[in-house]
Simulated assay, not measured.
Amino acid sequence: MIDSRFKYFYVDSDFGPAIDVRPVPERVLSLYKGKLPEKLLEYWKIYGFAGYGEGRFWMTDPGEYAGVLDAWLVQTDFKGADDYHVIGRGAFGELIIWGTRSGPSLTISSAWGMIFPTDKSRWMDQGKQDFLIEAWLAGMDKEHFDEEDEDEKPLFERAYRLLGPLAHDEMYGFVPAAALGGPRRLDHLQKVKAVEHLTLLSMLEPPKVMRDIVKEAKERGIW
C-alpha cells in the first residue's frame, strides 16, 4: 500500500480488492496536474481508475463526467464559481466533486436531485489538499454508498445478486426515478449506463441545493 490512509480504506474499511481497473495514461495525469491534488494523481498512477467495495464506490476519470457535471451545475450558482471535477462516484449515482479552489466542496445525490455543499476553505487556504484527499478515502464506509428501500433496508447487496456486478461505466438506477416519486424497491432497480442515466436525472427538475451547515456555523462564530 502506498500509505497508511489508503491501506485503511482498502483493508480496514474492506473496500479492496479493486475491480475493473483501468490504467491512467500519462497524458491524463499531465492534464490534471495543478488542478487536482498530487496525492490523488499519485493514487491514479499506482492504482488506476477502479471500483472498490464490489462496486459501491468508483475512482473516476473526471473527463468522462464533465458533461454530466455541467448538466447538474448549469442551473445553480456553482456554475463558473470554480473549476469543478468529478473525482468519485457511488453505485447509485452519488458524485463527489473537487473544486480547484474549493476542494471537496460538493456532493451530488443524483437519485434525489440534491446538491450538498461543504465549506473546505479552511484546509484549502492552508495548502492541505493532499490531506483532504487522504482523509476523504480513510473516512469512507460502505453504508454511505448504499441506498435504502421503502422499508429502510439496504439495497446494494441484493441489487448485486439480482442484477450482477457493475462495470466502470454502469450504476444501479431507480426506474422510474425516485426524484419523480418512483418506488424505492429492488424490483424498480436496473443496471444502467452511468453517464446517460446521470444526465437524464439532471433534466428531470432543477437540483435542490441543501444548506451548508459548516458555512453557517462559521458565519455564526460557533466553529
Rank of each mutant, 00 (worst) to 15 (best):
P207D: 01
E152G: 02
R122G: 03
D70S: 12
V214H: 09
I133W: 14
L73K: 09
D3G: 10
I97E: 00
G139Q: 05
A66G: 11
V11F: 15
E54S: 08
L155E: 01
L40V: 05
G221I: 05
E54P: 00
I19C: 02
E157G: 04
K128Q: 13
L36M: 13
I96T: 15
L41V: 00
Y65C: 11
D151I: 01
A71G: 06
P25Y: 09
A91G: 02
G127D: 05
M210V: 09
K193V: 08
D70Y: 07
W98L: 01
H144Y: 14
I96Y: 15
M171N: 06
V192G: 07
E134V: 04
G99H: 10
S102K: 14
G103L: 00
G53Q: 03
S13R: 15
D14R: 14
Y47L: 14
A111P: 01
V86K: 07
Y65M: 13
P17M: 03
A66T: 12
D212R: 08
W123N: 08
G99Q: 09
I115Y: 10
I108R: 09
P25A: 11
W98C: 00
A217Y: 06
P37Q: 05
Y43T: 05
L31R: 14
L166Q: 05
K33S: 12
F57P: 03
L155G: 01
Q75H: 12
L163A: 03
G127T: 02
V195Q: 14
G16N: 06
D146M: 03
E219I: 10
E148T: 06
M1P: 06
E42A: 09
W72G: 07
I19K: 05
V209H: 05
G164D: 11
P37S: 10
A91M: 00
V68L: 01
E26S: 08
Y65P: 05
D187F: 02
P17K: 01
K142H: 03
